[in-house]
């Protein structure tokens, strides 16, 4: 049994009216039409999904973008139901990584039901799928229960990846990539060179004296302490043939 969750920004928006109609027709043709739930300003997405699960829903299909998925990720991964996507509009990086085309073409991918179980990362108890980005990283990473720490010695950006073009989301590991800019040579001949450090890990902590900003699946978080971990293979998601992982 399918439940389709429409994000607020696509409802009543003339730009997506025609596309939504085509999607609904295609879903009916494929025989996978289901109940439609609509997100709204004062409606809690998690409560809506819990109600649908109680009514026997086994697959929740999100119509929207990466922001919509963030709203429902915690409840879907905890309840072990299947997540499907119909990407609409811009900001659909996750759908691209999962090999799901935009708009009406996604209905055929849904119908094929190629389900993969993937890892989900956690940061201070909040879940993320793709990764965490820390621009201008000036803090330290505490790894392996504090047995060793990693600090950048030059200007660096930190990227923690779960699902990315070069990162497998089914291996039970996250990958911390530190992109540093290293000065080489001297005087007027000096130049900056990019280097990339890679640390695979399951648990890691970011510690900073001053508050830092980071972006988990594109959403900003601020603080001085972040505990990052992984929950292996807890999210069941419908993927397309052109997904970036094997």
């Amino acid at each position: 049994m399918y439940c389709y969750l429409y994000d607020e920004f696509i409802q009543g928006n003339k730009r997506y009216e025609r596309e939504l109609l085509d999607i609904e027709n295609r879903l009916t043709d494929l025989g996978i039409a289901g109940k439609i739930s609509r997100l709204a300003l004062f409606r809690n997405a998690e409560e809506m999904i819990r109600d649908e699960i109680d009514r026997g829903v086994k697959t929740v299909v999100v119509l929207g973008n990466d922001d919509t998925i963030r709203k429902v990720l915690d409840v879907i991964s905890e309840s072990k139901i299947v997540l499907g996507l119909i990407p609409i509009g811009p900001k659909n990086e996750l759908a691209r990584l999962l090999g799901i085309p935009n708009g009406v073409e996604a209905c055929d991918v849904l119908s094929a039901r190629r389900i993969e179980q993937i890892d989900v990362g956690t940061i201070n108890g909040r879940k993320f799928i793709t990764g965490v980005r820390v621009p201008d990283f000036r803090a330290e990473l505490m790894c392996n229960d504090g047995k060793y720490r990693v600090v950048p010695t030059s200007r660096a950006d930190l990227e923690i990846q779960n699902l990315a073009d070069v990162c497998n989301p089914c291996d039970g590991m996250l990958s911390a990539n530190i992109h540093s800019s290293v000065r080489k040579g001297w005087g007027p001949f000096a130049r900056h060179e990019q280097t990339n450090s890679v640390l695979p890990f399951q648990f890691l902590a970011i510690r900073s004296d001053k508050p830092i900003s980071l972006y988990a699946d594109g959403e900003e978080m601020q603080g001085t302490r972040f505990d990052i971990g992984i929950e292996a293979m807890i999210l069941k998601v419908i993927t397309g043939k052109s997904r970036v992982f094997i």
Binding site: V150, V166, L199, P200
Partner: peptide, 17 residues
């Protein structure tokens, strides 16, 4: 997709411990 167990500590990074 990188081998999940390969660690690279490049220039510009210091490991203590």
């Amino acid at each position: 997709q990188q081998s999940s167990n390969e660690t690279i500590i490049a220039q510009g990074v210091k490991v203590e411990g």
